[in-house]
Amino acid sequence: MTGLEFVFVLIAALTLFSAVMVVTTPNMVRAALWLILALFGVAGTFVLLNAAFLAVVQVVVYIGAIAVLMIFAIMLTRKVMKDSGPQTNSTWGLAALIAAALFGGLTFALTRSPAATLMAPDFSTVSDPVAELGRALVSPQAYVIPFEVASVLLLAAMIGAIYVAWKK
């Protein structure tokens, strides 16, 4: 196993373990913190794919803004942090079966698809990936329309959120 594969297995194990803990832990604040760890694992995966910019963006936006927002929402609205009652309900057997079937189906489909043999994209010929991304974002042949629409979308999201959350 090469060093890269070893690191990938480590990061993937961390991400999956944190994801399982998010769903199973009864304490909500701890679930939020496990989520932060899982998102951090995703950022690590981005680094292994030579997408360093996306990795830091993941941390800045997802962990720094969205996770903080979620924690605020949890801490401000719940008096009792522990979920009361049992963790599973009566139909948990059927749910586990469906989840396992879905997992098996997805694994089967992915290993048969071209994605199974893809390697991390080789950026050694590109001098500056971030600059290329920037150029693609504003060039008329590439993504300029989504770029401007994204700003309108952010404006709409801001106005919508204020409309929902603001009481005056």
Binding site: I66, L137, M158
Partner: peptide, 30 residues
Amino acid sequence: VQYYIFALVFLVFDIETVFLYPWAVAFDKL
């Protein structure tokens, strides 16, 4: 609600700056 509102506005502006950073880095070629 004010705590939540400030975090929300921060989120929107954060995403905006994240879009702008590649634009700033590619400035020479634009």
